[in-house]
Nucleic acid binder design. Structure first.
Length: 493
RNA sequence: GGGCCGCUAGCUCAAUGGCAGAGCAGUGGGCUUUUAACCCAUUGGUUGAGGGUUCGAGUCCCUCGCGGCCCA
């Protein structure tokens, strides 16, 4: 790395110190946000500004710098809004002009006082009378035309990406607005936001492999949560009838355009509700998020447009798989029978160890990619859903839905299983599946069963993949684009 | 995990196997209306790492690292 420019800047830093100026002062001093300055004066012409003689103080980061010898222009950016500063040698103290002309580098933070005016070219500007360094930058920012293009650098040094690529800044803001909207939506419906353990003695609530860690003082093996489901249900059992958490979960698996090992999931639970109520809830929630983030219920997704208005389609998993493949998963109810049925249709069945995994594979491969517009897939096989209540019409399937959009699963919801006898039986079945080779089978959780035996109300539960919702609302090609600091391999070499 | 592509100055990018370059940024000089300012001059390189082939490798071969795209 070139030390040249850094050394120049270090020399300027030292020069400031020698002149008795702190290059990193503790206080900024009074200032008016640039957005307010612009709002107040953008519409005024030069004559009006001249007559009003408005004195302002602004702060910001130096984005560009142009010197004409006796006249200097530079641009300050603060909170994403830019304003030009001019400095005229004939008008101000020579030392102050020298500071503006020679001491300021691109990337520095400065405070400027002066009059608001318009230049000959009509650019609203602050004509500098006083200036102070607020923070000296030692390293240069990316090039001004093309910004930071290198994908890897954009992820590893996201601060540079945010500074030089407007789109990255927009996505960060869009993500924040999305999460605020979700929180507001639930708060308005009397859900209580809670926090539950990230470090769990036993993982559960989803089908996934966990990260394993260790607490030294207690000599205890712990897992980073794959879900907060079982803790939120304990809270419902404890009388907190409506709870939610916007949680970071961790799954020890590969990375793709739709998977990240660390991701954000909103889970909420509502006593005395069921999966149908959760459909209404998630529909409203995603719409609220879309309105807040994009201002519209028609969301651009690549060459498609996702229509979030109207009633979203509802199809059972059985129907969806029949439609896509001709295979009836409720006719072929063993892994052997299902594999044979697939073979008959000329469809590869892979090496799925169990019927449940094979159903999941068939769905993921043949149905999911085609689910572009918002669609609820309902009534999953019971074996795939150990925490969901069985359907009263057919105990082979459960009261569950997953919401799909843009070929991705966005949400998952159940009428939560609250029968502790059945729950124990389901965990036992999971053990059988684990022994059959399913690495993602749900572990037995005695502590959770004890909680349920004390009495759990009928409950609707919902989980929403926040990163994926943001990705859709941002029309982003990759999940990493909507995660500020995505997981990468270590970069030292 | 597999296939393909990429990694060259702080940034964006060039360079038939034959002297490693440009623009921006930086430095010095000029310039009182620019906003991708302009003009003159100029600094800056372990070409991702390590081997190999060759008179000669950024370029060809091998191994590895990191990233991207596609597939599983």
């Amino acid at each position: 790395m070139s030390e040249q420019e850094r050394n120049v800047r270090l020399q300027r830093l030292e020069a400031l110190r020698e002149a008795g100026v702190d290059p990193y002062p503790p206080r900024t001093g009074a200032y008016t946000p640039i957005a307010e300055v612009r709002a107040a004066h953008d519409e005024k012409d030069g004559e009006q500004l001249e007559s009003e003689n408005n004195e302002v103080a602004i702060v910001g980061r130096v984005k560009s710098h142009r010197s004409f010898g006796k006249l200097v222009f530079f641009t300050l950016v603060e909170s994403g809004v830019a304003l030009q500063v001019s400095a005229r040698k004939s008008e101000i103290d020579p030392e102050i002009f020298r500071f503006a002309n020679k001491k300021i580098d691109i990337g520095d933070f400065v405070r400027v006082e002066g009059r608001v005016w318009r230049t000959q070219k009509g650019e609203l500007s602050v004509d500098l009378a006083q200036a102070q360094m607020l923070s000296k930058a030692l390293l240069p920012l990316p090039e001004k035309w093309h910004g930071l293009q290198d994908q890897e650098a954009r992820y590893r040094q996201r601060y540079l990406d945010l500074l030089s690529n407007e789109r990255s800044r927009e996505i960060a803001i869009l993500r924040s607005r999305t999460i605020s909207a979700v929180r507001r939506f639930l708060d308005e419906r009397d859900f209580l936001e809670v926090e539950t353990p990230v470090l769990q003695p036993l993982y559960g609530g989803a089908a996934a492999e966990p990260f394993v860690t260790h607490h030294d003082k207690y000599d205890q093996q712990l897992y980073l949560r794959i879900s907060d489901e079982l803790y939120l249900k304990r809270l419902v059992i404890g009388g907190l009838d409506r709870v939610y958490e916007i949680a970071h979960n961790f799954r020890n698996e590969g990375i793709s355009h739709k998977h990240s090992p660390e991701f954000t999931m909103m889970e909420c639970y509502q006593a005395f509700a069921d999966y149908q109520d959760m459909m209404d809830l998630v529909q409203g929630m995603v719409r609220a998020a879309a309105e807040a983030a994009t201002g519209s219920l028609s969301v651009k997704w690549g060459d498609d447009t996702l229509e979030l208005g109207g009633e979203w389609k509802r199809v059972s998993m059985q129907e969806a798989i029949v439609e896509a493949t001709g295979i009836d998963i409720l006719e072929a109810t063993t892994v052997e029978a299902l594999r044979a049925a697939a073979k008959e249709k000329g469809i590869g069945a892979g090496d799925a160890p169990t019927w449940a995994v094979l159903v999941d594979d068939l769905f993921s491969e043949h149905v999911e990619p085609g689910l572009m517009q918002p669609t609820f897939i309902t009534h999953h096989p019971t074996e795939l859903s150990p925490l969901a209540k069985k359907s009263p019409d057919d105990p082979r399937v459960v009261e569950r839905f997953e919401l799909f959009m843009a070929g991705m699963e966005l949400a998952n919801a159940y009428s939560e299983l609250n029968d502790p006898i059945d729950q124990r039986a389901r965990f036992d079945e999971q053990r059988v599946q684990a022994e059959a080779g399913d690495d993602e089978a749900h572990p037995m959780d005695e502590d959770f069963l004890t909680a349920m035996e004390h009495g759990m109300p009928p409950t609707g539960g919902l989980g929403v993949g926040i990163d994926r919702v943001v990705r859709i609302l941002a029309d982003a090609a990759n999940l990493r684009e909507v995660i500020l600091f995505p997981h990468l391999r270590s970069g030292d070499s």
